Amino acid sequence: MAYLNTADTVELIAKLTSIPSPTGNTNEAISFVERFLHNINVPTKRTLKGGLLATIDGKNTSKSRLLTAHVDTLGAMVKEIKINGRLKIDLIGGFKYNSIEGEYCQIETNSGKEYSGTILLHQTSVHVYKDSDKVERNQENMEVRIDEKVHNAEDVRKLGIEIGDFISFNPRVELTGSGFIKSRHLDDKASVGILLQLMKHLKEENLSLPYTTHFLISNNEEIGYGGNSNIPPETVEYLAVDMGAIGDGQATDEYTVSICVKDASGPYHYGLRKRLMKLALDHNIPYKLDIYPYYGSDASAAIRSGHDIVHGLIGPGIDASHAFERTHRDSIENTAKLLYHYVQSEMVR
Score class of each variant (00 low, 15 high):
88 K>P: 01
53 L>T: 06
42 V>N: 08
161 I>N: 11
252 T>H: 14
168 S>H: 12
347 M>N: 10
86 R>N: 13
103 E>C: 14
91 L>R: 07
63 K>P: 00
113 K>G: 04
164 G>W: 03
274 K>I: 15
221 E>L: 05
232 P>M: 04
177 G>M: 14
192 V>I: 01
341 H>D: 07
187 D>V: 03
163 I>G: 01
222 E>R: 05
7 A>L: 12
225 Y>I: 15
208 S>T: 08
74 L>F: 02
211 Y>A: 13
68 T>E: 01
309 I>Y: 08
170 N>Q: 15
77 M>N: 11
295 Y>C: 04
266 G>F: 14
73 T>F: 07
123 Q>L: 03
327 T>D: 10
200 K>F: 09
259 I>Q: 01
219 N>K: 05
229 S>T: 02
60 N>L: 10
263 D>Q: 07
123 Q>V: 03
209 L>Q: 11
157 R>F: 08
71 V>W: 02
21 S>P: 09
293 P>N: 03
306 G>H: 02
123 Q>R: 06
45 K>M: 06
188 D>W: 09
29 A>G: 06
291 I>F: 06
244 G>K: 14
233 P>Q: 08
117 G>P: 05
109 T>L: 01
185 H>Q: 00
247 G>T: 06
201 H>L: 07
75 G>D: 02
46 R>P: 00
275 R>M: 11
65 R>L: 05
67 L>K: 02
2 A>K: 15
72 D>M: 02
2 A>C: 13
49 K>H: 10
30 I>Q: 06
24 G>V: 12
135 V>I: 15
176 T>E: 04
295 Y>N: 04
263 D>N: 05
201 H>C: 08
287 Y>Q: 05
163 I>N: 06
69 A>D: 05
4 L>W: 12
251 A>W: 07
117 G>V: 06
131 D>H: 04
301 A>L: 08
162 E>D: 12
153 A>H: 11
334 N>M: 07
315 G>W: 14
122 H>F: 12
334 N>Q: 14
57 D>R: 15
